[in-house]
Computed example of a mutant assay.
Amino acid sequence: MKAIADRVGVSIKSVSRVLNGEGGASPETANRILATAEEMGFRRNELARGLRQGSRTNTIGLVLKESSTRFFVELIRGIEDVAERHELLVVTATSRSSDQEKATLLALSSRRVDGLLIVPASFDQAYLRPEQAAGLPLVFIDRPPAGIAVDAVLSDCFGGGYAAAAHLMENGHRRIGVIGGFASAYTVSERLRGYRAAFETHGIRVDRNLIRLDTEGASEAEAAADELLDLADPATAFFTLGNHCTVGAIRSLRARGISNDRALVGVENMELADMLEPPLTVVTHDISDMGRIATERLLARINGDDSTPQVVILPTRIIPRGSGEIPSAR
Rank of each mutant, 00 (worst) to 15 (best):
R7P: 10
R208K: 12
A263E: 12
D274P: 12
T57C: 06
L64A: 03
M1H: 14
V267Q: 06
R191H: 00
N20K: 13
Y195V: 00
E28Y: 15
G21Q: 06
R112W: 14
R175C: 04
Q310L: 13
S67Y: 15
T57D: 04
D230K: 08
L228M: 11
F42C: 10
E222T: 06
L299P: 12
A83G: 08
T187P: 00
P279R: 10
I258Q: 13
N303R: 14
F71H: 11
E200A: 12
V150Y: 00
V311C: 02
L19Q: 11
R56T: 15
L75C: 07
T69W: 08
R256K: 10
E84H: 10
A329F: 02
I250P: 03
R193S: 13
A263C: 06
L51V: 15
A232M: 15
I141E: 07
R32H: 14
P145K: 01
S68Q: 14
R174C: 00
D286R: 04
A103M: 11
R77T: 10
Y162K: 02
D207P: 02
R17H: 15
D81H: 13
V73F: 09
L128P: 12
I293Y: 03
K2A: 15
A37C: 02
G291W: 04
L19V: 04
D151W: 06
G322K: 04
I12M: 11
G304A: 00
G194N: 10
A25K: 10
S184A: 07
A185N: 11
A35L: 06
E66M: 07
L106F: 12
K2P: 07
G21A: 02
A166E: 09
M40A: 13
V188L: 00
G78F: 09
E66I: 15
A165M: 00
N171Y: 08
R292M: 03
Y186C: 02
I204L: 10
K13Y: 09
K2W: 14
Q53F: 09
R49C: 11
E190F: 01
R175V: 00
S184E: 01
P130T: 08
T236Q: 00
D230C: 01
L213R: 05
S219T: 10
E22C: 08
A165Y: 00
E216G: 09
